[in-house]
């Protein structure tokens, strides 16, 4: 049993009684009281909807949402989705949207965090200003950018014209070639400061002594970043990238308000598409099936997310 040296005389101790699961649950019955209110609320507003979405995805439900008239249609809704060319187009756009938004938000955030890491006059103010896009509502952001992008009176076109880069206003969002990218810019504007603040906190965990030691050893700023700072940032970076990716995958407001997924579906992503299917075209079953597929994709991402977040948790248990 034990590999501790010198334990011969103790080896005849009885194996401690193992307690069963029900006993354990009973022993912690008071612990559950603390989480019960939260769990009840979550069961109603989260558990039930998830169950219901799954159920609806196997039915054909009339547009009026008359549930008594819904008909079981097996996997039809799923087949409809997976065989529709729109599905693949929207999926590709969702991937582009998620990957590009996440990448640029992260890189800009990283640059800002590194530049802000050193103490200088006005740093606090600068940080606060850079964080504002992240606090204002996406609704406000969408309207402002819609106005900035305006095809006739947009400030961006006007500026580019004055600088002489273009000679007539560009139609950024009413254009099937540019709409998605125009929206990605808005999304990055809204989100980079989230990455910045996370990475700034991460930078604070990089031991100064290590950086100084590297400097004494003659490492260039780039080498110091790559060999000392970056490895320390890996944990935070993982969490940040995951959160950004999830958030972007789930975006709705910016595309919905700015283009409604258009023109001609060129800026449609999963969520706007599902919303359109459900509340625009009342195709409840197909929309639910979409939601279930999305759910499964998110479960996989979610596994990594929770793993990254709860690492090292068990060392902190109390009685």
């Amino acid at each position: 049993m034990s590999t501790v040296p010198g334990q011969a005389i103790f080896r005849d101790v009885p194996e401690p009684r193992r307690i069963g699961l029900s006993q354990k649950v009973w022993n912690s019955r008071f612990d559950y009281l603390y989480v019960a209110p939260a769990l009840i609320v979550m069961l109603i507003v989260i558990g039930y909807p998830i169950y219901y979405t799954i159920e609806l995805s196997f039915f054909n439900t009339p547009a009026s949402l008359a549930l008594s008239a819904k008909q079981f249609n097996g996997l039809d809704n799923y087949v409809t989705i997976l065989t529709s060319p729109v599905f693949w187009k929207v999926t590709w756009q969702t991937v582009l949207w998620t990957v590009l938004s996440t990448f640029f938000a992260f890189m800009i955030g990283l640059g800002a965090a590194l530049a802000l890491h050193r103490e200088f006059a006005g740093r606090g103010v600068l940080r606060a200003l850079l964080l504002i896009p992240w606090v204002v509502s996406a609704v406000a952001a969408s309207y402002v950018w819609k106005w900035l992008y305006h095809s006739d009176f947009g400030a961006i076109s006007a500026m580019l014209t004055q600088v002489g880069w273009i000679d007539k206003p560009i139609n950024f969002i009413d254009n099937t070639n540019t709409s998605l990218y125009a929206l990605i810019v808005v999304n990055v504007w809204k989100e980079f400061s989230f990455a910045m603040i996370m990475l700034m906190a991460g930078l604070q965990t990089v031991p100064d002594t290590l950086l100084r030691a590297a400097q004494v050893d003659g490492a260039s700023p780039w080498q110091r970043f790559w060999h000392v700072t970056f490895p320390h940032l890996q944990g935070v970076s993982m969490v940040t990238l995951l959160l950004l990716a999830v958030q972007n995958f789930n975006s709705f407001i910016i595309p919905w308000i700015m283009t409604g997924g258009g023109p001609a579906g060129s800026s449609d992503i999963w969520i706007t598409h599902i919303y359109q299917l459900a509340f625009g075209r009342q195709r409840w079953g197909v929309a639910s099936a979409y939601a279930v597929i999305l759910f499964i994709v998110m479960m996989v991402l979610g596994y990594f997310y929770v793993r990254a977040l709860t690492k090292g948790d068990d060392a902190r248990a109390a009685g």
Binding site: P49, I50, V246, A287, L294, M298, Y305
Partner: peptide
């Protein structure tokens, strides 16, 4: 609990 943060409102919207 954490997983909820992963899901878009749309998943919950219809139900």
């Amino acid at each position: 609990v954490l997983l909820r943060n992963m899901f878009p409102a749309v998943v919950f919207l219809v139900p």
